[in-house]
Every structure is written in structure tokens, then in C-alpha cells.
Amino acid sequence: MTKRSTLAAPYQIFLVLFVVLPLVLILIYAFMDGNGGFTFSNFATFAGQPEAIKTFVYSIEVAVITTVLCLLLGYPAAYIMSNSQLNRSSITVILFILPMWINMLVRTLATVALFDFVRIPLGEGALIFGMVYNFLPFMIYPIYNILKKMDQSYIEAAQDLGASPRQVFFKVIIPLSMPGISSGVLMVFMPTISTFAIAELLTMNNIKLFGTTIQENINNGMWNYGAALALIMLVIIGITTVFADSSSNREEDAGGPI
């Protein structure tokens, strides 16, 4: 038995080389100046550039707005599709999932085509629409899955105990679907905060997002500064993941058997 576990060794080496080491390198580069010495100056540069800060804050705003819109549009859709009284066929579910497999760039350009077609100029509206368009399926899918698996007897119990439909929805269904909501939020927020090409194409490069700033710096050979910005993004994503994890775990505990 012990011998077969050595089969993991090549992959272990591969992971260290191509997953762990690159991330460590981002960390090292972020705290390194052009000559290889230790420095905080990359972060100081970021803090000292109002333009960069503005882009950073704006990107978070766009990501939050996109996530909230996806949740507001996606939750009812997931709820309707999971409810056997409102929707019997599974074809709608498949139709929502299919576009997830089409290349992101192609979908973004398709949105550009739609805006061209209805003669609405590209800009902030197109950006938000395009983001929601791209990531809505990623919100619907996890919520649908959790609602589909939900034990219907909880809802019946609440009804039997005299809860109004509104109370059933807000006190039973929403709390029980929290794990789906948090993974949906994560699946929408993470790509929106880190995207760069989508914003470029949807605004004809008029609006810059944080991802674009990072890409431009890396492209222009500003590796240390770019690595520092990438590290800032990693921290934001790490915080979001921890936050989403804890909220879903707590709800799981609360919703578990007594």
C-alpha cells in the first residue's frame, strides 16, 4: 500500500513548481524593487496614485453592482425553475447552463453586437449589462441546485405552523438556500473583480478596471508593481472567499438537524 502512494510524487513536484512557486514569486516580486532589494515602495506607489485608487474602488463597485443584480435577477429564476408547481420541464435549466460553455470573449462580443444592433452606444451601461449577461448563469446554477435538493417538509411544516407565504420565503427558504447564494456570489464576484478584457471590449477601452491596470503594468514590464497589484487583488479575493465560506457554514449549522 505504501508503495502506491509514491505515485503522487510526480504531481507533488509539479504542484510545487507550477502552483506554489508562482504564487510565492508574486509575493516576492511585490516586495522587491528593481534591484532585488526589499521594499514597500510598490504599495506606496499604488497608494500615491489617485488614478489607480479610483480604478480600484470603481472595480469593486462594478463587481458589487453586478453581483447584486445577478442575485436579484437570478434568485427568482432559480426559485421558479426548482418549483415543480411553476415549472415542470428541465429544458429551461439546460438552456441557462449552455451559455456557460461558450467562450467568455465570444459572449462579450455578442453583447457588443446586441448594443450595436439596438444602436445604444457602448459605455458604463453596456459594461454592467455585459457583466450581468456573462455571469448570470453562474449565479442561477448553484442556487437552483440547492433549492432543488431542499427538503420540502420544512416549508410544509412552516405553513402548518401558520407562517404566511412571505414568512415562509424569508424565514425558511432564503436561510436554507444560503450555501447556494454564497457560492453563487463567489462565482460572480470573483471573475467580475478580476476581469480585464470584458471591460475593454464593452466600453471601447474608455473605462478601466483594476484587472486592466494589472495587465497593462505587466505588459509594460512593470513586473514588481504589477505583482503588488495582483497581491492586492488576491487579498480581496481571499477575504471574499473566507467571508462567503463562513456565512454558508453558519447557515448549514443553523439549518441542520436539531
Partner: peptide, 22 residues
């Protein structure tokens, strides 16, 4: 560690590998 590449946003994976190769 196996989960990291699946969690990482593309841009971070891209930049980290770029820096590795450089």
C-alpha cells in the same frame, strides 16, 4: 494545493506563471 488553481482567478494564474517563466 490541488484546489488552488481551481479557486484562483485566471488573471492571477496567468501573472503568477508569467513571473515564474520570466
Amino acid at each position: 494545493v490541488n484546489n488552488i488553481p481551481m479557486m484562483n482567478p485566471d488573471i492571477i494564474t496567468g501573472i503568477s506563471l508569467f513571473i515564474l517563466f520570466v
